[in-house]
């Protein structure tokens, strides 16, 4: 039986590319990132091409996703969040479609790569910190001392608060990565059982079916969580406490 984590192996497609000493070959992971971009792009532009006043089914799906994120930004960031809407919308669609594409058999789930989720999380984290610094200048650093706490606690509290702030990108990326990886690993394990047990494989097959449904839910949920946490962090950066 193949290792259940073998599915996460990065495989190069086509010739190896090296730029400035770095390997940037096209891989299965890259293929699905581009595919996700393509799917989202085609879906959101083609479904709206009719510009129907009374939407078709696919157009209303596109509108629904748009309004879903628009409401999320409006409610969690406020009116100041408007300029960041295209970014947050792209982020949500990218992760959502990436997660869902991964549910297709023989496909690759790029969100199960810690480096991918971490690159997204650290970019968001740095960008949001910059937004906060631009908006509030040095006042930003008062963020790290809880108002109302006794001053003599500062030497202990400030490092804790800073660490708690710095752990944001880690928890953000680990949450998405771990969910996707755990789900896909479990599915692989149960898939292995189905094959190994032959006729008696019906039981794990049922588990596998249930698990597949659950994983689709997780795929949507984790895209949502990643996006809404981005919104909440952005709110903090804009408003500070």
């Amino acid at each position: 039986m193949a290792s259940p984590v073998e599915q996460f192996q990065i495989k190069t497609i086509g010739p190896e590319l090296h730029v400035a000493g770095m390997d940037i070959s096209f891989t299965n992971s890259a293929l699905f990132m581009i595919l996700a971009t393509f799917v989202v792009g085609v879906f959101l532009t083609q479904s709206m091409s009719g510009r129907h006043l009374v939407p078709t089914r696919i157009q209303s799906l596109a509108e629904l996703s748009y309004e879903f994120i628009a409401n999320m930004v409006r409610e969690n960031v406020g009116p100041e969040g408007r300029p960041y809407f295209p970014f947050i919308f792209s982020l949500f669609m990218f992760i959502l479609v990436g997660n869902l594409l991964g549910m297709i058999p023989y496909s690759y789930t790029f969100t199960s790569q810690i480096i991918v989720t971490f690159a997204m999380a650290i970019t968001i984290f740095v960008a949001i910190t910059i937004v906060a610094l631009i908006k509030h200048g040095f006042h930003f650093f008062t963020f790290f001392f809880p108002s109302g706490a006794p001053v003599y606690m500062a030497p202990l509290l400030i490092p804790i608060e800073i660490l708690s702030y710095l752990s944001r990108p880690v928890s953000l990326s680990v949450r998405l990565f771990a969910n996707m990886m755990a789900g896909h690993t479990m599915m692989k394990v149960f898939g292995g059982f189905v094959v190994a047990l032959g006729v008696f494989g019906v039981a794990p097959l049922l588990v596998l079916v249930a698990l597949t449904g659950f994983e689709i839910l997780v795929a949507v949920l984790q895209a949502y969580v990643f996006t809404i946490l981005t919104c909440i962090y952005l709110y903090d950066a804009i408003h500070l406490h």
Partner: peptide
């Protein structure tokens, strides 16, 4: 820093659990 980090993590857990989001600053 291991212990400070654990404290920070707990702080985040506390905030998440009491419904204060994940924001820094505990009041």
């Amino acid at each position: 820093f291991f212990f400070l980090g654990a404290a920070g993590g707990m702080m985040n857990v506390y905030r998440a659990a009491t419904g204060q989001g994940l924001s820094v600053g505990y009041t």
